[in-house]
Simulated scan of single mutants.
Amino acid sequence: MTRGFSIYLDALRFLAALVVFASHMGYDRFTNGSMAWIRTLNLGSDAVVVFFVLSGFVIAFTTFARDRGPAAYAEARIARLYSVIIPALIFTFALDTLGTLTVPGAYQGWWYNGEDRIAQLLQGLTFTTQMWTDNTRVGSNGPFWSVAYEAWYYAGFGVAVFCKGRTRILLLALMALVVGPRVLLLGPCWLLGVGLQQLVARGHAASLSRTTGWLLAIAPWAIYAFALALHMPQRLTWYTYKLLGEQITPNALFGFSDEFVWNFGIAVLMALHFLGVYRLAREADWLGARAETAIRWCAGATFSLYLFHYPILTFLHGLPAYDSAKPLHAALMAAVTLVACFLLAEVSERRLGFWKRLVHGVFERLKPSPPTASGSGSLLSQRERG
Rank of each mutant, 00 (worst) to 15 (best):
C163N: 07
Q130C: 15
S140W: 01
S140V: 00
N135H: 08
S140H: 04
Y154V: 13
T136H: 09
M131Y: 15
V159T: 07
T128S: 15
V138D: 00
V159C: 05
D134T: 07
R137C: 06
V159W: 01
A160F: 14
F144C: 01
A151G: 13
V138P: 00
W145L: 00
V159S: 08
G156F: 09
G142I: 15
A151D: 11
W152R: 06
A151W: 15
F162M: 04
G139C: 07
D134P: 08
V159F: 04
A148I: 10
Y153K: 04
V138G: 00
T136K: 05
T128I: 12
C163W: 11
G158Q: 01
G139T: 05
F144K: 03
V161I: 09
G156V: 06
V161D: 03
Y154I: 13
Y154S: 09
S140R: 03
T133V: 13
T133P: 07
W132V: 00
S146R: 12
C163R: 12
S146Y: 15
T128F: 05
E150L: 10
A148M: 07
G142H: 10
K164P: 13
N135W: 08
W145N: 04
F162D: 00
C163A: 10
S140I: 02
T133S: 12
V147M: 15
V147L: 15
D134N: 13
F144E: 01
E150R: 04
W145A: 00
T133C: 08
A160N: 12
Y154F: 12
A148P: 06
F127E: 12
A148R: 05
A155C: 14
M131R: 11
A148H: 03
F127T: 14
F162T: 03
T133H: 11
T128Y: 03
N141C: 05
F162G: 00
T136I: 06
F157T: 08
P143N: 00
N135P: 09
Y153V: 02
V159H: 03
S146V: 02
N141W: 00
T129S: 09
W152S: 08
V147I: 15
F162V: 02
Y154N: 04
G156D: 07
V138Y: 11
F157C: 08
S146N: 14
K164F: 12
T129W: 00
V138N: 04
A151V: 13
Q130P: 13
S140K: 03
P143E: 01
T128M: 12
T128N: 11
R137T: 09
G142K: 06
S140Q: 01
V159G: 08
Y153N: 01
G142W: 11
V147D: 04
V159D: 02
P143T: 04
V161L: 06
V161R: 04
A148S: 14
A148D: 07
F162S: 02
F162Y: 02
G158K: 04
C163S: 09
G158E: 02
P143Y: 03
N141A: 06
G142A: 14
G158Y: 06
T136W: 07
K164H: 15
Y154K: 05
T133M: 09
T136P: 05
G158T: 04
F144N: 02
W132L: 04
G158P: 02
E150A: 06
S146L: 14
V147G: 08
S140Y: 01
Y154D: 05
F162W: 00
A148G: 11
D134S: 14
F157A: 09
G139H: 07
M131E: 12
